[in-house]
Design a protein around this nucleic acid. Structure first.
Lengths: 359, 359
DNA sequence: GGGGCCGCCTATAACGTTATAGGAACGGTA
DNA sequence: TACCGTTCCTATAACGTTATAGGCGGCCCC
């Protein structure tokens, strides 16, 4: 039992192992592994080779423990949400640029936000980025007393919380302006219910139609964030009389449900009805969906979230608590001029039974 | 500079802070926080209160560094994949039951599997669970020399690797048996290309139709894992003559693309064509899709993956390297008896132009 | 030749926790 | 009184790393 090290060959090699192998101090090995100056080229090379040979990997726990700063940013995300997935991808890039590491903690069925946050607290993250959190503001505020908190894609008004979000109202302005420019006047907005951002998008819709003097020929239909919500809303839409020629939808998932029901009902898109989504998710980009939609700038949002966390940690003086990112419109193939507009009856009117009975 | 502790009030409290606050040793606080015997009820209560009051959270880095075992299992997953998302949810549950923690590392655009794995190695994970990895077997085998590796949802034959996967061939047997039982004889399988599991599902399809003596009236169409692949395959399907009455599809995403194109072409499902997917993903369960599909048993797969990792770590003697989980069929509304079968012409034939020109 | 600086290296002490060993006080027993 | 076993508690040394403070030559410059 002179050398327990040798009796357990499975032990992971440490700095000391590499140092002993080369015949130098652990400090020198540490210098070389961190690529900081202070070692001769000869030793640098020998140490690198020994580390490679022994399969040495630094122990991040020990590193983080020793270093005053962990340079770790925690991210809470919903593991099934495609939008969160895209954001996480962007965050990895942005964190790398800022020289921070990311610690991921998922919200999943059976694992709520409190659990996810608690695990990140234990990991000594210096700041937290929460993607579309649904925890009460009081909980978020309490967290903010402990460390910088950046909330993404949810509007929270609290002086201790940073927020990065899309200008949802502006997004609906873009959508409505686009439809009006195409010649539509009878429009409807399918709402997101209590989902984050839904109220602002609804407000944006109202503002835009009022600006165009189209308040009387506009509607809001109850909906929600999911495909099912969209499908239900589309059925209600089919009963409207006279039928609007264009629809703005809370998000792309919901819009997909709308498109599906319209297609099954024999209503052609964009022939009889134009549809605009929101998010520019993977869904919208699928060639068979090819949805005109309001794109959130995921890259910029990720960048801003990380930068804001970093600025808070650095004590940099920042201005607004809330960073609002402008969306932009991506025109694809679900929008076109209305064919039933009195002013320009270009194409033949639709011949489906529904259209006939409602026209 | 007598007490730097007091001069920086923002520092996170440590065991020592709690101990000083109560007037006991750090060891005693540690005992209480870990809920191990050896402290008097009075002190136990006082320490708990002090910890709460100071907002003390144990530093998991220091804990893991000190403890011989980290009890940490690393998980590599694709951050945008809904199936991986479901699995991660299951893994959290299973890991909790086995008294392990999970460390998540995402594969995302700009962050490949090597990066994801390297970060977990640094975190001193004791084992790795890789969800549908696409790294070469050689890389996985090299990892397996370092620690237990469990591969989920991909078939890899290597004596050092544990595999947990669905019995893909059996899944297609279920699908074909179901269709045949409904009365279908002309079927087609839309393939997954090079996606994991595609070859086995294709083989299962071939086996099943041969068993039913339907080889001559069966086809395989090239496809892929995405909605777009399904949409393209569906267009090819529409050109088949005579048109098959039922389709088995590589997965639910691909099936969604198929359904969409069929719907736009005026082909009714399940009236004219029955469709069976694979995965039972969220997609399939949406009420407006309501897809008959082969369900992978996510709960069992998660459980088996964690258990296998644990057994390897415990040195438990386990049998097979490969754990094959049986799928089951979920019948929803995209399958029905064929209406064009000579034996029972129940409904009126469809009247859409496409159907007419091809019928 | 003295002083200063630079390049290379090492010893030591942390970081916050837990494992180990052991001490003090107390009651019970011989 | 001596001895034992509990119960409750503490001191100390790790875990693997890095920050700090040097040490030791050698070279340059007055």
């Amino acid at each position: 039992m002179a050398e327990p090290t040798r009796s357990t060959p499975r032990r992971r090699p440490t700095l000391a192992d590499v140092a002993a192998h080369v015949g130098v101090s652990t400090t020198l090995v540490s210098l070389v592994m961190r690529d900081v100056p202070g070692a001769s080229p000869v030793n640098r090379e020998r140490i690198r080779r020994a580390a490679e040979e022994l399969g040495y990997h630094p122990d991040s726990r020990a590193q983080l423990l020793r270093r005053s700063r962990s340079r770790l940013i925690g991210v809470v995300f919903r593991v099934q949400d495609p939008f969160d997935g895209d954001l996480v991808g962007g965050l990895y890039g942005a964190a790398g640029d800022a020289d921070y590491e990311l610690a991921l903690s998922a919200v999943a069925p059976g694992r709520d936000e409190r659990r996810a946050v608690a695990s990140l607290l234990q990991d000594r993250c210096e700041a937290l980025i929460l993607l579309a959190p649904h925890s009460p503001t009081s909980f978020l505020a309490e967290l903010a007393g402990r460390m910088p908190i950046v909330v993404v894609a949810r509007s929270v008004r609290h002086r201790a919380l940073d927020v990065v979000r899309t200008d949802n109202a502006a997004g609906l302005h873009l959508a409505v302006d686009h439809l009006v420019a195409l010649g539509h006047s009878r429009t409807v907005h399918i709402d997101g219910g209590r989902a984050p951002g839904a109220a602002e998008r609804r407000r944006g819709y109202h503002e835009a139609v009022r600006r165009h003097g189209l308040t009387d020929s506009s509607h809001v239909l109850p909906g929600g964030p999911t495909e099912d919500d969209g499908a239900a809303a589309a059925r209600a839409f089919l009963d409207l009389h006279p039928r609007p020629t264009a629809v703005t939808v809370f998000n792309d998932r919901c819009a997909t449900g709308v498109l599906d029901v319209l297609s099954k009902a024999g209503v052609s898109v964009p022939g009889q009805v134009s549809v605009v989504g929101f998010d520019d998710s993977r869904l919208a980009r699928l060639s068979h969906v090819d949805l005109t939609t309001v794109a959130q700038n995921i890259g910029q949002m990720s960048h801003l979230a990380v930068t804001r966390a970093k600025d808070r940690l650095d004590g940099t003086d920042v201005g607004e608590r809330e960073l609002v990112v402008s969306p932009h419109l991506v025109v694809r193939s679900t929008t076109a001029p209305p064919t039933t507009t009195p002013s320009r009856p270009t194409a033949t009117t639709a011949s489906s039974p529904e259209a006939a009975s409602l026209g």
